[in-house]
Design a protein around this nucleic acid. Structure first.
Lengths: 202, 202
DNA sequence: CTCTTAAGCTACTAGCAGTATCTTAAGAGA
DNA sequence: TCTCTTAAGATACTGCTAGTAGCTTAAGAG
């Protein structure tokens, strides 16, 4: 090969190769030699830019995320909005991107620094949509103030994430999604303000 | 070494060595050579009994679980029982046993067979306690029938598990536990039967 | 045209899962 | 007590991968 890429062009080629390897074989099976070969370069060139396999793959993961901000669904009912948001989340989690993210998260547990950045990226993606949906429902009088907490707002996605942690890579069924929405999210959001709370402080 | 163990005694020694290695360095860092050395035997002896590192570690994990069935807390209030159960779950999840289980689960994702057995073991451990606590609260008139679903029963532990998936190994704070109980579990369990449900079917 | 930088190449270390082979102790049966 | 089968133990090996080192040479700036 007589031509030689440098700088940004080379970096882009490596990231692209890493994205393709991630998509095809996943994080666990990705090898640095594989990425180097696919990018038409050598391993040490990769190590000049990223300190480890994990770091490269995190960068590649970022690189493969959809860029444009997506819209908040507006079906007219809280239940419909919630189902739409949860279905969208499920689609992402069951896609290659979701699989890669879970493998990355699992492999990074011992590195709090990287954990934080990845988790923030995960979290930031969704919360605002749920708060928007809840706020709209509140303005319709569908939900009370007590539901407007981060915990309640993210409860559906949190439960969905738990399904994946327990079930492995297989996609979660629509039935489970409606179960989460109908048995947990909607009841929580639309509950009466204070039925019999503060029952005891021991 | 002139004495040579055989059969069950040897198997027990290997499992014990694996348990110690798991406790000290965790699943990720456990090596077959390490287990063999600690057990005073050789790698191939281990492979005559378990087909892989993962299989050995699952057996060792089972071997290190507490055997006796634990009691269901009875504080007199649903909130108190829930906090007690969730605190106990948190203690387990933040212990070496919990760390090992999470590493195992993460490493087994691609093996549905092993996934199922491990997950069932995880699930079986807790659900009945929550159902008991809910049933007692129902008999006191504290909760309605709609709360007696597996989904609602396990919602607190599911959310706690999600915290560990996102936060890594660091223990979840008591504040988060009370947040889960007060903002999610208790409201769900004590809600009025059907406030304004079935809002629309589109 | 020259000189610095970094890309590309090749070879290396170190660690680990899993396999193979051979020797020899354990223990069962005669 | 002797013998014979089984499996424990020791050792060495394959194959794979992360990460490192050093050398050669193209790119591109001045």
């Amino acid at each position: 090969m007589t031509t030689r890429r440098r700088g940004a062009a080379l970096e882009e080629a490596i990231l692209q190769a890493a994205v393709e390897e991630l998509t095809e074989v996943g994080y666990r099976e990705l090898t640095m030699d594989g990425v180097a070969a696919r990018a038409g370069t050598a391993k040490n060139v990769i190590y000049r830019r990223w300190p480890s396999r994990a770091a490269l793959c995190i960068a590649a993961y970022r690189h493969m995320l959809p860029s444009g901000p997506d819209s908040t669904p507006d079906t007219g009912s809280l239940r419909g909005d919630a189902l739409a948001l949860l279905t969208r989340a499920n689609d992402r989690m069951s896609s290659p991107v979701g699989r890669i993210l879970r493998q990355l998260l699992a492999d990074i547990q011992s590195d709090p620094e990287r954990m934080r950045e990845l988790r923030d990226q995960v979290a930031r993606a969704g919360v605002s949509h749920w708060l928007t949906v809840l706020a709209r429902a509140a303005s319709r009088g569908e939900v009370g103030q007590q539901a407007l907490t981060p915990r309640v707002a993210t409860v559906a996605v949190d439960l969905l994430r738990n399904e994946y942690a327990l079930n492995g890579a297989t996609a979660v069924s629509p039935e489970v999604l409606t179960e989460i929405v109908d048995q947990v999210f909607v009841p929580l959001a639309t509950q009466a303000p204070a039925p019999s709370d503060a029952s005891s402080r021991d």
